[in-house]
């Protein structure tokens, strides 16, 4: 079964994902990359703020919040 890449801002469900593509030109993404959010990194979507923005993701044992517009620049694939 082919794995379809999804944009992180479209994901509404729990589960484990793997980063496939990042837009390093976006300053938020660049910041997350220095924290270890790189291609192939696994992450989980842990929380959504009341209006669905921002969202919180967990990777490498740390929880980071980012806004939906920035999450749109991250592509992931579901791995379970």
């Amino acid at each position: 079964m082919p794995i379809l890449p999804m944009r992180l801002d479209r994901i509404k469900k729990d589960g484990l994902f793997r980063v496939t593509k990042l837009d390093s030109g976006n300053p938020c993404i660049a910041r997350l990359m220095t924290m270890g959010l790189l291609p192939d990194q696994e992450l989980r979507l842990t929380h959504e703020a009341p209006l669905g923005d921002p969202i919180a993701i967990e990777f490498n044992g740390c929880q980071m919040s980012l806004r939906i517009e920035d999450a749109a620049r991250i592509e992931v694939e579901a791995i379970g």
């Binding site: 300053p27 938020c28 929380h47 919180a56 929880q63 980071m64 919040s65 980012l66 806004r67």
Partner: peptide, 9 residues
């Protein structure tokens, strides 16, 4: 302005 990425410690 700084990007708004914030750790939830």
């Amino acid at each position: 302005s700084q990007p708004f990425v914030m750790e939830l410690p």
